[in-house]
Nucleic acid binder design. Structure first.
Length: 698
DNA sequence: AGCACGCCGACT
DNA sequence: GTCGGCGTGCTC
């Protein structure tokens, strides 16, 4: 049955028919249509790329008040009932045919705010993905019980302390904060320095957030992991922005995926309803619906956790950059190091640099020395030792003053081993993955397929003995325990027995940690020793930058040189990486790397998309993309390929790279999305992954 | 995704 | 002579 709004069927009892005739034809079976904005444009929660557009539905009068923009609805789509979000309510339909009515409003809560909807669309477009893929990252699953919880009374206005004390050492820092308070939208790339309590990175971020809140706007801080969330929340508390709690809705809320569905949804709603003016969270919180957003912050943008591992693989730094443009808010990315993409934001003039001068840098950092084999040559045969004599002496001397941090790039025991006779790397007989040993008396195990290599013999020379190539944190802790009898040794790492330690006490101890798992010492470490520098700064795009980032993160936990703090880099790292650490100059390194990538036409100087999947599928996707330089496809090798063959995937994968000048990045994404849309409509076989600016380019 | 319609092989 | 393969098309 066809119902035309404004026609005789829609006359409500005793009311005259609306005078305006609307062009909405709806198959509502006689039920009246909403008087006001009778059409809902709905994003349908189905994965195929060719369905990534709004579909229009008629809004029955009964849902006129509940089917608001941003609400979750159920609609009939084809022969199935599907979930969706109301993107907007409009007066007239663009669709020519009849409109089906919305089936049901799941919840009238507008969980998809207009700002977040716009951001999600922009993210989908930028990374050649679909809106619903992004919404799955952006909007947590509904939790009905949490939604029904009473909303507490706000505890009065939030008035944080006004201070820029943690910023005075940084050129442009206090001005940035002032600009934020006064409602501006400055953009800064900030290189943080270690410091005394009150002037550390957490304090600086807390003061920037306080400045924003003081100006009457909300703020969003995205950090790599939950430990950092806690650190920022503590600093915020000290800056006069207390922790949000359900019974005192006020302040800063923690938003992380690993808190579980109920806690996460509660935190999400706190931001949505404006009870929490500030959100501090991990990766997915980059989409949090903060009210009157005034400032977005990304801390340590080089940390791999900021790269979303699910399609369309957006990166927090870029999402927040996009968001700051869309919402006209301030943008701050900070780290002890400097990533090449962050440097690119500065180089292009999009953001301003906020850094300390040389004198401030020198006075706040530890003394850094690199011990490479050339320097150690005079030590004789001991130079080749993993812990050369000068490093041993430094540890011994500094232990008297407090804890000493030892950073080991690899976890485990002996993660990589080789033939004891001919030194060929030991590989798995089945998949050719690298063999490692998990404990003092462990059997060699394949790092790719996990098979035990009992009775291993070398492919090359037939020998049956193994030697270590890389030594992990566990074995290092053992060795250090023997080298420093009587000194407590603690191990921190995701795979360590005690897990990741948040902090250690200010007492003499050896603290062995893998990168990113370093505990903080309240008064700073007396020294840090960064082992296996060559392993850290291996080959591959961005390896040097990444190694320097991890070294600086550890070095930033050490006392200043004035307080005796020392950092030793042990091993043969590439000279430019070692020098960037010794001179504490991550910006110089990032700047040179960026120049080089421009010459080599590598990202971020250009935009690259990788297309991975079965050969035919990749070819079909790439075929439909015009005006692009195509590299490959080449067979995919390495752990992923081995894993696939281990689970019995028949078809080997290939990867093609598409390269365009940066200015054509948007066109490339659009063209790829169109190709994927054709692909899904035609149901071309296989699974294809498209990744823009992939991080694992080598 | 899910389900229709629509043209060519082996079976009650 | 039918039952049924999955190749295109559509879903507001």
């Amino acid at each position: 049955m066809e119902v035309t709004d404004g026609g005789e069927q829609l006359v409500l009892d005793g009311l005259p028919a609306p005078r305006v005739r609307r062009r909405v034809r709806a198959a509502t079976g006689g039920q009246p249509l909403a008087e006001h904005l009778p059409v809902a444009r709905v994003a349908i929660d189905l994965p195929p790329a060719h369905l990534d557009r709004p579909f229009e539905y008629a809004v029955p009068a009964s849902m006129a008040q509940s089917a608001v923009a941003g609400s979750r609805v159920k609609v009939r789509f084809g022969r199935q009932d599907v979930d969706g979000y109301v993107l907007e309510r409009v007066e007239t339909a663009e669709h020519d045919g009849e409109l089906l009515p919305l089936r049901r409003v799941v919840s009238a809560l507008p969980v998809l705010t207009p700002a977040v909807a716009r951001l999600a669309r922009a993210v989908a477009d930028r990374w050649a993905g679909t809106l619903v893929d992004v919404l799955r990252l952006a909007v947590p699953p509904r939790h009905a019980r949490v939604e029904g919880e009473p909303v507490g009374e706000a505890a009065g206005p939030l008035v944080p302390h006004a201070s820029a004390s943690a910023w005075t050492a940084f050129r442009g820092g206090p001005a940035f904060l002032q600009h934020v308070t006064s409602g501006g939208a400055p953009r800064a790339v900030w290189t943080a320095l270690p410091g005394a309590p009150g002037e550390r990175w957490t304090d600086a971020i807390a003061q920037a957030v306080a400045a924003c809140v003081l100006g009457g706007r909300g703020a969003l801080v995205v950090v790599p992991d939950a430990r950092d969330v806690e650190r920022v929340l503590d600093a915020l508390d000290a800056a006069g922005v207390p922790r949000w709690a359900a019974d005192r809705p006020h302040g800063a809320v923690r938003l992380t995926a690993d808190d579980g569905p109920a806690v996460r949804y509660r935190a999400f709603l706190a931001a949505l309803r404006g009870g929490a003016q500030v959100v501090v969270g991990t990766r997915a919180s980059a989409f949090a619906p903060v009210r009157d957003l005034g400032l977005v912050v990304c801390w340590d943008d080089g940390d791999g956790l900021h790269a979303e591992p699910r399609a369309p693989y957006p990166h927090v730094r870029e999402v927040l950059a996009l968001r700051s443009e869309l919402e006209g808010c301030a943008f701050l990315v900070g780290a002890h190091g400097r990533t090449v993409p962050a440097q690119s934001l500065v180089a292009s003039g999009w953001a301003r640099e906020v850094v300390a001068d040389r004198a401030a840098t020198r006075s706040r950092t530890a003394r850094v020395l690199a011990l490479n084999s050339t320097e150690l040559a005079r030590e004789g045969p001991a130079a080749a030792a993993r812990l050369p004599t000068p490093a041993w002496r430094t540890i011994r001397d500094r232990l008297a003053a407090g804890p000493v941090l030892v950073q080991v790039p690899r976890a485990g025991y002996l993660p990589v081993v080789a033939c004891g006779r001919c030194r060929a790397s030991a590989r798995c007989a089945t998949c050719h993955g690298p063999l490692g040993i998990a404990s003092a008396d462990g059997t060699p195990t394949c790092g790719w397929c996990g098979r035990l290599a009992t009775g291993w013999r070398c492919d090359e020379c037939g020998a049956g003995t193994l030697r270590s190539v890389q030594v992990g944190s566990q074995r290092t802790a053992e060795e250090l325990g023997r080298a420093f009898p009587g000194v407590p040794v603690r191990v921190s790492g995701a795979r360590a027995a005690g897990g990741v330690l948040a902090s250690v006490r200010d007492v003499p101890a050896l603290v062995v940690a893998t990168p990113g798992a370093e505990p903080v010492a309240p008064s700073g470490y007396a020294a840090a020793v960064l082992l296996d520098a060559a392993t850290s700064a291996g080959q591959g795009l961005g390896a040097a930058e990444d190694a320097v980032r991890r070294w600086l993160a550890a070095a930033a936990l050490v006392r200043s040189s004035a307080d005796g703090g020392q950092v030793l880099l042990v091993g043969d790292a590439p000279e430019r990486a070692a020098q960037a650490l010794v001179r504490w100059d991550p910006v110089g390194l990032a700047s040179r790397e960026l120049d080089e990538r421009a010459e080599l036409r590598l990202p971020p100087a250009v935009r690259v998309a990788s297309v991975t999947g079965p050969r035919d599928a990749v070819a079909a996707v790439v075929e439909r993309v015009d005006d692009v330089e195509v590299l490959g496809p080449v067979p995919v090798t390495g752990a992923r390929a081995a894993e696939r063959s281990a689970v019995g995937a028949l078809e080997p994968e290939v990867r093609a790279l598409l390269r365009v000048p940066r200015a054509q990045g948007q066109a490339l994404a659009r063209s790829l999305a169109a190709s994927l849309s054709v692909r899904s409509a035609r149901r071309e076989g296989g699974t294809v992954r498209v990744q823009l600016d992939p991080t694992d380019l080598s």
